[in-house]
Write a protein that binds this DNA or RNA. Structure first.
Lengths: 124, 124
DNA sequence: ACCTTGTTCAACCAAAAGGTTGACAAAGCC
DNA sequence: GGCTTTGTCAACCTTTTGGTTGAACAAGGT
């Protein structure tokens, strides 16, 4: 839709592809050239080259030069961006859940069903 | 490409969209109905309905029923899946980086350039 | 200079994503 | 019963994505 979306979108989008996730997994064990990366997959070298481009645009990898080879290196810092985003909302959701639990404790004597949990969540 | 891809692909793919990420952020503060969720965005209710479906298929949200309303609820557990994946490879990459550092320490007297760092990473 | 190896660029294609509008279902309100 | 609210289904359109092939570029090796 938008030509160049925000960082987080590109990172999540890059990792949404299983082939690219697998490549990241392998790069975590050490740098690799394009053909080394391509070896296990049943697709053209060009397709792999494109995948690496996507990872690079997401800031997940960087490429150097070694003669004709273009070694691909995993840049782990971007992971922090994701982790922060995830943790933020997970914590928020968990805190909310705990507040709900506490509320349920306080009114445990009353005959209320789960609908109350949900309603409190939406309103509070 | 594949009709129903693995869980992780669907989760990352779902969060690759900024609108959906925003919806998740808002749901972390409490459940909401479809129209409540749709309100801030300049798109049709149908488009929002589709977004919610994507989040649901990714296991990020679930829907209950309250009269005509379909309250959307954030399921935080799926976040663990992502976090685990991310942490695994980040740690691996960091450990590798530290081993490289240690290696560099041991051979600090020699006149070696960064190429050695890269080569060790690819071969080891 | 020429060949080989490693990688990218360009054009093209099919499928998926994200949006639209129109019709319809489901449940409360008058 | 009929209207209104809330949401989904279906058909359609456009852009993006992930793949293809063929040509080209880059940098040693001989």
């Amino acid at each position: 839709m938008v030509e160049h979306e925000d960082r987080l979108s590109r990172v999540f989008s890059a990792l949404a592809d299983p082939t690219r996730r697998d490549m990241v997994a392998r790069l975590a064990a050490g740098d690799a050239t394009v053909s080394e990366l391509a070896a296990p997959y049943d697709v053209s070298l060009q397709a792999v080259s494109k995948h690496i481009q996507v990872l690079e645009e997401a800031g997940l990898v960087s490429r150097s030069r070694d003669a004709q080879r273009r070694p691909v290196h995993l840049d782990a810092e971007v992971f922090d961006l994701m982790t922060k985003w995830i943790e933020r909302y997970r914590q928020q959701a968990e805190e909310r859940y705990q507040r709900l639990d506490a509320l349920l404790d306080r009114m445990q004597g009353r005959e209320q069903d789960l609908t109350d949990r949900r309603n409190e969540g939406a309103a509070g």
